[in-house]
């Protein structure tokens, strides 16, 4: 059994998780704080300052709730990317300091891989088509030849980004999620008409920026907002589902797993259920609590990596803002 403390700070959430491998429950601690900007989107520097001021408190809380001391921890894991530079640096600095001071091995974790690994752990999916949807990421992947290979992704903005920016520009948000429902989803419930908006699927990729611009133009021209919400949501979700379907058939998989912050959408889930039924696949959706960014997923992936011998010297543990999921070797899974 290994005990790993993991630190997440790629965007707006600073999270510290402690996990123990080969043990249930495997989660010993799960502490998080989330930066919510007063207006507009995340300002990376503001988010980083917020984290830096409170990080020590979160680490202390995680250790207290886990009931262990740092000396009992086998390794420190940290999300080194992808994400916002200033925010990543907060987590990386703390992780390097803890590892140096307590002489613990340091384990580098890719944030996207962590979303996948916690999804596999919690849903029990074995070899699924992975659909990773969040504020900053939209990608469809599957495990092949030792890595999570990307089959399709957004050519411009991410699905979560599309929904949030549309909400912000039309005054529906922030906050973007109210009682677990995205404000665009909620607004779409009142929609009746499907309006003419661009539906873009290019092979195995999607693109959303044209859709965003066209939708905002419709609103400006006086179209009924709920109709625009409905049309926008239908185009965007259907495009992702179509790409996932292509991947499912191209790779001969029988499972689909949805992870990331947007996975919480009940409406998207319903659509995926229909799709899975149509193609005889099983659908797995990561529980909402672990769909969003958290430290547990970093700790859990750190435990897998550490057990497979993956560590990084402290002086080489630098952040990588654009670290792609398909650049990471996954030695803990059989190819």
């Amino acid at each position: 059994m290994v005990i790993v403390l993991g630190i997440e700070s790629t965007a707006h959430t600073f999270g510290v998780g402690v996990v123990a491998s080969d043990r249930e429950p495997f989660i010993l601690a799960d502490e998080r704080i989330k930066y919510t900007p007063p207006t507009g989107g995340i300002h990376p520097r503001e988010a980083a300052r917020y984290m830096a001021e409170r990080a020590h408190e979160v680490v202390r809380r995680a250790l207290r709730s886990s009931g262990i001391t740092l000396s009992e921890v086998d390794a420190i894991a940290v999300a080194l990317g992808p994400g916002l530079g200033p925010c990543l640096r907060v987590g990386a600095t703390i992780a390097r300091a803890l590892a140096a001071y307590f002489s613990k091995p340091l384990v580098p974790v890719n944030h996207a891989v962590a979303h996948v690994e916690i999804g596999l752990k919690l849903t029990g999916a074995r070899d699924p088509v992975i659909v990773y949807l969040s504020g900053g990421n939209t990608l469809i992947a599957a495990f092949l030849g030792g890595r999570y290979r990307v089959f399709g992704e957004t050519l411009d903005i991410a699905l979560g980004n599309l929904l949030d920016v549309f909400a912000r520009e039309t005054g529906l948000g922030p906050p973007y999620v109210v009682k677990g429902v995205h404000v665009v989803d909620a607004c779409a419930e009142e929609g009746k008409e499907i309006l003419d908006l661009p539906y873009v699927v290019r092979g195995q990729d999607v693109a959303f920026s044209g859709l965003l611009t066209a939708a905002l133009k419709l609103v400006k021209r006086g179209a009924r907002l709920p109709d625009v919400c409905l049309s926008l949501r239908e185009m965007a979700y259907d495009a992702v589902i179509e790409v996932a379907t292509r991947c499912l058939l191209h790779t001969n998989r029988r499972e689909v797993m949805v992870v990331g912050g947007v996975a919480a959408s009940k409406y998207l889930r319903r659509k995926f259920e229909e799709m899975a039924k149509l193609y005889g696949a099983r659908l797995y959706v990561v529980p909402p609590e672990y769909a969003v960014d958290n430290g547990v997923m970093i700790a859990w992936t750190g435990a897998l990596a550490y057990s497979a011998g993956v560590t990084v010297p402290i002086e080489d543990a630098v952040i990588r803002q654009r670290w792609r999921i398909d650049e990471v070797d996954i030695p803990w899974r059989r190819a």
């Binding site: 965007a11 989107g41 995340i42 300002h43 990376p44 992808p82 994400g83 916002l84 530079g85 200033p86 504020g135 900053g136 990421n137 992704e153 957004t154 050519l155 411009d156 903005i157 991410a158 980004n161 803002q321 654009r322 792609r324």
Partner: peptide, 17 residues
């Protein structure tokens, strides 16, 4: 150009500001 684009929008946004 396509391959470099859009992958990490958050970072691109961060660069713009």
């Amino acid at each position: 150009e396509i391959r470099l684009r859009g992958r990490y929008v958050e970072e691109r946004r961060a660069r713009k500001r």
